[in-house]
Computed example of a mutant assay.
Amino acid sequence: MDHLDKLESQSIYIIREAYKQFKDIAVLWSIGKDSTTLMWLIRKAFYGRVPFPALHIDTGYKFKEIYDFRDEWSKKWGMRLVVGTNEQSRNSGMGPNAGDKLSCCGQLKTDALKQTIDKYKYRAILLGIRRDEHGIRAKERVFSPRNRQFQWDYKDQPPELWDQFKNKQQGEQHIRVHPLLHWTELDVWMYVQREHIPIVDLYFAKNGKRYRSIGCEPCCNPVDSEADTVDMIVEELRTTKVAERSGRAQDKERAYMMQKLRALGYM
């Protein structure tokens, strides 16, 4: 069993354990490389199907390529797609150019996610975040409890020693489950390479630029790169010193801001 086999095996175990414990569950699908890899693992875990809804939080500002990919592959994979939006905030004009990034992400992403979870009564959500993405995400647990308001107390996290996960809810807790927490960016791309996982074209270089992290179009900038194939991306990541999220809106990426967003329920 090689490195990728071990990562795959542990993630599939976590996915199956989450589904066993929480039947009212969904997977958050941002359409990025990590959440699409998670979707691939879920399909492996359940023999080609996704037995629970795929939840996409739509701010209204995503790249066209993201919407096209979502619609195409949700049909091909036979997923139950749920699109969550904060209609009130969108109708009031909230967006990347209206106010600060904390307010925009808070209303169009965090509040939209909370509203959708509350509407469909999901007891747990699977997400494709990784510890190496951001210092604040490194504080997460595989099974991460939130309170009734979906808020995360990063100072009060259950220990997870020797892969013993605290996968039981207490009272009205909501659980976030992170099956890719132990993966790295390079691991994900090597797995995409091995498994031939479909990926949004935005990740591949055009005219010397490509996106390493994708989300809302106004908040993402491409980085310098000539990597226009998965093989070239893998080779690039072996040597690059550029941070993965360097192309994202920097006021949101600062440690304090990201920690505040996540404490309020951000992905």
Rank of each mutant, 00 (worst) to 15 (best):
D2Y: 02
L4I: 11
L7Q: 07
S9G: 05
Q10L: 15
Y19V: 15
Q21C: 07
F22I: 10
V27M: 14
L28C: 06
S30M: 03
K33A: 08
T37H: 06
R43A: 03
P51H: 03
L55M: 15
H56S: 06
I57N: 09
Y67C: 00
D68N: 15
E72M: 02
E72S: 00
W77N: 08
G78M: 07
S89L: 11
N91G: 06
L102T: 08
K114C: 07
T116L: 02
Y120E: 02
R123A: 07
A124N: 09
I125M: 15
L126K: 05
L127M: 11
R131G: 00
R137Q: 03
E140V: 02
Q149N: 15
Q151G: 01
Q151K: 14
Y154F: 15
Y154L: 13
Y154D: 01
K155A: 13
R176C: 12
V177M: 04
V177F: 05
H182S: 14
W183N: 04
T184E: 00
L186M: 01
M190L: 10
R194Y: 12
E195P: 03
I197F: 00
I199H: 01
I199G: 01
V200Y: 00
V200F: 00
V200Q: 04
V200W: 00
Y203H: 09
F204M: 13
A205P: 03
G208Y: 06
P218M: 13
P222I: 10
D228H: 15
V230H: 12
M232W: 00
I233T: 06
I233E: 03
R245E: 02
G247H: 10
R248Q: 11
A255P: 01
M258C: 12
K260L: 10
A263D: 08
L264N: 13
Y266P: 01
